[in-house]
């Protein structure tokens, strides 16, 4: 009997949880706020689903409700992607080391 592809995805999922567990524990506590904003940004990779939803436009019928859902989801995810990465960058720029002069 062939293995259901679902099992492969489940394996990826479970292993990623473990990767996430160890990677996140190694994040220094002083960067926990940037961690939250960057996880916010990357979870918006859900935009790939939104693009598929919006692009399934049929030329004869024009826009369907599900295309609108897709487009709305693209706007929301894009806010998150740009907002999340940029605010993270802004925060990380502020972290400076002690100057050794004087």
């Amino acid at each position: 009997m062939e293995i259901d592809p679902f099992i492969f995805r489940l394996s990826i999922f479970v292993l990623s949880i473990f990767v996430g567990y160890y990677v996140v524990w190694s994040v220094t506590p002083s960067l926990h706020t940037p961690l939250m904003s960057v996880t916010n940004a990357i979870s918006s990779v859900i935009i790939v689903g939104a693009i598929v939803a919006a692009s399934s436009l049929s030329s004869d019928v024009g826009f369907e409700l599900y295309n609108m859902f897709g487009l709305a989801a693209i706007v929301l995810a894009a806010i998150n992607i740009f907002g999340g990465f940029l605010v993270t960058q802004r925060m990380l720029k502020m972290y400076k080391k002690k100057k050794k002069v004087k």
Partner: peptide
């Protein structure tokens, strides 16, 4: 999406 979801 699965990897990211699990990480987040």
């Amino acid at each position: 999406l699965i990897i990211t979801g699990a990480l987040v």
